[in-house]
Simulated assay, not measured.
Amino acid sequence: MRHLLALAIKFVMVTVVLLIVLTLSFDVSFVNTLLISLALTALSYAVGDIMIFLNAGSPENQSARNTVATLVDFVMAFLVIWLIGWLLTGENFAMATPALLSALVIAGGEWFFHLYVDRSVVPEYNNYKSAKG
């Protein structure tokens, strides 16, 4: 249940950013923006928030894990928005600027989202004790 709530929060965050940047500022259709939001949310939660964030360092070093995961989320957001946007709109280079702007804003939000994931979604991860002693 915690993961579903986290996915919903992330989807809302990504969708709001993409609606403002893609739809309102760059005239990408609402449906295309929603499709990009769905794809980006699913991929970045699985890869950036679960795989990378939780495994990029020791549980005690949240700042380093957060930095690595946020950088990965930035690159992933840029590539997903640009590539899917290009496929949906047929505009290759025209999607680069909105993808970059969106990725920057989303990466800023991801920093705080990772704090939420650490505290509320996987709090048991922070209580991890090494078997090596």
Rank of each mutant, 00 (worst) to 15 (best):
T41H: 02
L79K: 08
P59K: 03
V72I: 12
A69G: 07
A64I: 15
A69H: 11
G57N: 10
V80L: 15
S63R: 15
I50D: 03
Q62Y: 12
T67I: 15
G57H: 08
M76H: 04
N66V: 08
D49V: 03
L79Q: 07
M51T: 07
A56S: 10
S63A: 15
T70I: 10
P59T: 04
S63C: 08
A56V: 03
A46N: 05
V47Q: 02
T41P: 00
D49W: 02
V75S: 11
I50P: 00
L71A: 13
Q62D: 09
R65L: 12
T41S: 02
V72T: 11
A46C: 03
F53L: 11
I52H: 03
V68H: 06
V68K: 14
D73L: 06
V47P: 00
A56I: 09
D73I: 09
L40K: 05
A46R: 11
T41W: 02
L40F: 06
D49I: 01
A46K: 09
I50S: 02
L40A: 09
N61M: 10
A42I: 14
N66K: 14
A39E: 03
I52E: 06
Y45P: 00
A64G: 07
S63T: 15
Q62F: 11
D73H: 06
A69T: 09
V75Y: 12
A46F: 13
Y45F: 13
T70D: 04
M76E: 03
A77M: 07
M51P: 00
L79H: 09
A42L: 15
V68W: 10
S44E: 02
I52S: 05
T67R: 14
S58R: 15
D73E: 06
S58M: 13
T41K: 03
Y45G: 01
L79I: 13
M51I: 12
N66F: 08
L79W: 10
F53T: 11
A77C: 04
L43W: 07
V80N: 07
L43N: 01
G57R: 09
F74P: 00
F78I: 10
F74K: 07
L71Q: 06
Y45H: 11
F53R: 06
A56E: 04
F53S: 05
L79N: 10
A77R: 07
F78A: 05
L43V: 11
N55A: 05
N66W: 10
T70E: 06
F78W: 14
S44H: 00
V68Y: 13
D73Y: 02
M76Q: 02
L71M: 13
G48Q: 04
D49R: 00
V75W: 14
N61L: 12
A56C: 06
F78K: 09
G48N: 07
Q62M: 13
T67A: 15
S44F: 01
G57M: 10
E60P: 00
V75K: 10
G48R: 05
T67K: 14
N55F: 11
M51D: 01
I50L: 13
A69W: 08
N55E: 08
R65E: 06
